[in-house]
Computed example of a mutant assay.
Amino acid sequence: MTDRVTVQIDGGVADVRLNRPDKLNALDIAMFEALAETGESLAADPSVRAVVLSGEGRAFCAGLDFANFAAMAGDAGDVDGADSARFRRLARDITAREPGRITNLGQQAVHVWREMPQPVIAAVHGHALGGGLQIALGADIRIVAPDAKLSVLEIRWGLVPDMTGTAALIRLTGEDVAKELTFTGRTVDGEEAVRLGLATRTADAPHAAAVELARDIASKSPDAIRGAKRLLNSAGENDLAEQFLEESRTLGELRGSPNQVEAVRAYFEKRAPAFTDPS
């Protein structure tokens, strides 16, 4: 992992920040790798019960680093030798998947947040453009500043969303809105993003609001939270019979478990529950 991403864990909440503020947290190979590695590390940490994903400085993420974009187009430009070579390899075979995964590296930098068992809340301020927006769409919940600027920007460069964005846009906004945003690349502010389904709600201080929500989630049974995320993720993929069976399976696993019993006891004893981390 590099210094492209910082992580602080407190009270079961992982505060993850894109850490390239001088470049508005623009995406390069090192950022892709750091995001994927960070997500995979946190997913495997049973003490982490919720994640807040944000950007340092004036923006959440302004999208692809333009120097890397030049490398993708075949001109190494200002990209350092190692990064240029790695980016060129990715560009030459964009269909190559990460080992054992359904994603390439850029897609995994987003998909890791959706597939991890813990809830992820994106706190968006400033710009979330192109790949930066797609990273936010990988979260379970998005809290955005009213004046944030969000755009499916790829059409400006003659490209398409390629970091799992097409699936996320359809799921969140519906087909017609997803197409309008993708075909035009127009910028929407935080208020419109909420109306369209790109964001969950606005807050003047999105990071503080995200941390508050994460702490609330972290106070609930981690087994139930993980089970709920898994079920809600699969609801659009399973047929009804399989989804209903998965609900029953998950309930069967939870019912009578130590954390479920603790939730009931704490409620009736009017105290804060003391849950154990998943094994």
Rank of each mutant, 00 (worst) to 15 (best):
I121K: 05
V16E: 04
L254S: 06
L213I: 08
G57R: 06
I94G: 08
S257K: 01
D45S: 07
R88A: 15
A85V: 10
V48E: 03
E180D: 15
N68G: 11
L18M: 15
V16D: 02
V120G: 04
M1K: 06
D162W: 09
G174H: 02
G100R: 06
V112T: 13
E237F: 11
A85Y: 02
Q243P: 01
R171W: 04
P119Y: 02
P206H: 07
I143G: 09
T202Y: 03
L18V: 03
R249D: 13
P117H: 09
G158H: 05
A235S: 15
A85T: 11
A241Y: 09
D216R: 14
V112G: 06
A91L: 00
G57N: 08
S248K: 10
T173H: 00
A145D: 13
G131S: 14
R230L: 13
A30W: 00
S279K: 13
I9L: 04
V144W: 02
V264H: 03
D189K: 00
M72N: 12
Q134P: 06
D147N: 14
A224H: 05
A96T: 14
M163E: 10
T250F: 06
K149I: 14
G74K: 07
G132W: 09
I155W: 12
S41N: 08
D22I: 06
A44F: 00
R20Y: 10
L24N: 12
A59Q: 05
I170L: 14
E253I: 06
Q260R: 07
